[in-house]
Every structure is written in structure tokens, then in C-alpha cells.
């Protein structure tokens, strides 16, 4: 798994920086968010951006295996969001 990296590392680092900025913004929203729905949306965005982060990281380290992690995260994220949405709708269990 040591194929040569043909992409300038600066570019990849810049993209990772942008994703990190997006994640930081949603983390602030996760902290602020007046309602529970805002927090769930923020969590959802953090997970989505993490998928992108993993994909870029797999390019940077020339390890395409990491894409499997991205697949799993994309699926688990959906389940988590649905569970949260049901929780919002029904309120806390008695």
C-alpha cells in the first residue's frame, strides 16, 4: 500500500483545514443550538464532514482501505440520526 502520492500535499492539507473549519463551526452550533433539533443537525454535519475527512486522508496516506471506514461511517451516521429524530419526536422514555 505504498503507491506514490501524485498530489501536492499542501493542497490536501488545505482541504483538511477547510473540513476542520466546517467541523469546528458545527461543533459551535452543537454547543449553542437552542433546540435539540439543531444539535442533531450539527452532529449529522460533523459525521458527514468526517466521511470527507477520511476520504481525503486515504488519499494523503495512499491507503485506499480507509474508504471502507468511510462506508461504515456513512451508514452508521444515518442510523444515529434516525434514532435521534425518533427521540426528539417521542421525548424521553418514561
Amino acid at each position: 500500500m505504498t503507491a506514490d502520492l501524485t498530489m501536492p500535499v499542501v493542497l490536501l492539507d488545505a482541504i483538511i483545514g477547510m473540513l476542520a473549519f466546517g467541523i469546528a463551526m458545527s461543533a459551535i452550533r452543537l454547543y449553542l443550538g437552542p433546540s435539540l433539533a439543531d444539535r442533531v443537525v450539527a452532529l449529522d454535519l460533523i459525521a458527514t464532514l468526517s466521511v470527507g475527512m477520511i476520504a481525503i486522508y486515504s488519499v494523503k496516506t495512499s491507503m485506499p482501505v480507509l474508504l471502507l471506514v468511510a462506508i461504515v461511517l456513512a451508514l452508521i451516521m444515518f442510523l444515529g440520526t434516525i434514532a435521534f429524530a425518533l427521540y426528539i419526536q417521542k421525548g424521553a422514555p418514561p
Binding site: V41, D44, V51
Partner: peptide, 27 residues
Amino acid sequence: RALLVIGFLFLTAPVAAYIIARAAYHI
């Protein structure tokens, strides 16, 4: 594998948004 991730994202993200939006409106 990469295209599979795109497929999952484009299928699940709007559904998740719809469900959160509905729950948010509901409460």
C-alpha cells in the same frame, strides 16, 4: 467503494434531514 459512499450519502442524507425536520416541526 468511493462511488458506493456517494450513493449512500445521496440516499440517506435527505431522508435524515426530512425526518429531523418533521420531528422538529412536530415538537
